[in-house]
């Protein structure tokens, strides 16, 4: 962990500790307990390391079918972008005068791809794809970026194992950074 990141982290811990002890006192007995089943039905959050990825699997080949049927009309046949964002290409451009931010060039974690596609895509019918279809489409988008082979099959383990090219491309907020 970078020094600055660690300092911010330590400061947060301290704050939470102080607030946490002060917060222990008052409760209003409002609301009802949520059951494990309810939480499981609602919670679709995936972490960056893929530990929360669900069961199921999907192939790049099936991903191509789903993509062409449901994604290509906005994102283009090869993820080149249209009304939807460009998904493929751009690797090596981030430090150039014309950076192209795509899944392959910019996204730091492959499990985030699963998280986002499952919760928000396709834009006209979000949360309509099965987990297997989401694995498949995630895999196909990785394939379009040269990050997966054509006969690959993705599941929780193999998707989490993908190391995205820009994984280490993010830095903490240094602001204020402009002095008068």
């Amino acid at each position: 962990m970078a020094t600055r990141e660690f300092r911010a982290f330590a400061a947060t811990l301290l704050l939470v500790d102080i607030a946490g002890s002060a917060l222990g006192a008052e409760r209003f007995e409002i609301g009802r307990p949520a059951t494990e089943a309810e939480i499981a039905a609602w919670n679709i959050d995936i972490d960056r390391d893929g530990r929360k990825l669900p069961a199921g699997h999907g192939s790049v080949a099936h991903g191509r079918e789903v993509f062409e049927a449901q994604c290509a009309s906005c994102h283009g046949q090869k993820g080149e972008g249209d009304t939807g964002e460009q998904l493929a290409g751009g690797q090596g451009t981030l430090a150039s005068a014309k950076p192209v931010k795509t899944v392959g060039s910019f996204w730091p974690y492959a499990p985030t791809l699963f998280d986002y596609i499952r919760r928000a895509m396709p834009m006209n019918a979000p949360q309509s794809l099965s987990d297997g279809d989401v694995y498949a489409v995630s895999g196909y988008v990785l394939y379009l970026n040269g990050l997966a082979v054509e006969n690959a099959v993705f599941d929780a383990k193999s998707l989490a194992a993908i190391r995205m090219p820009n994984r280490d491309g993010f830095v903490p907020d240094p602001r204020p950074d402009v002095k008068p």
Partner: peptide, 29 residues
């Protein structure tokens, strides 16, 4: 940990000239 969701990795991060991107840039100056 943060979720590292799409909206805090591929979006709402600030790309710098050296190709790195600032993340968790919360405050509006």
């Amino acid at each position: 940990e943060p979720a590292y969701s799409r909206e805090e990795t591929s979006k709402y991060t600030d790309l710098m000239p050296d190709g790195t991107a600032r993340q968790f840039t919360f405050v509006m100056e």
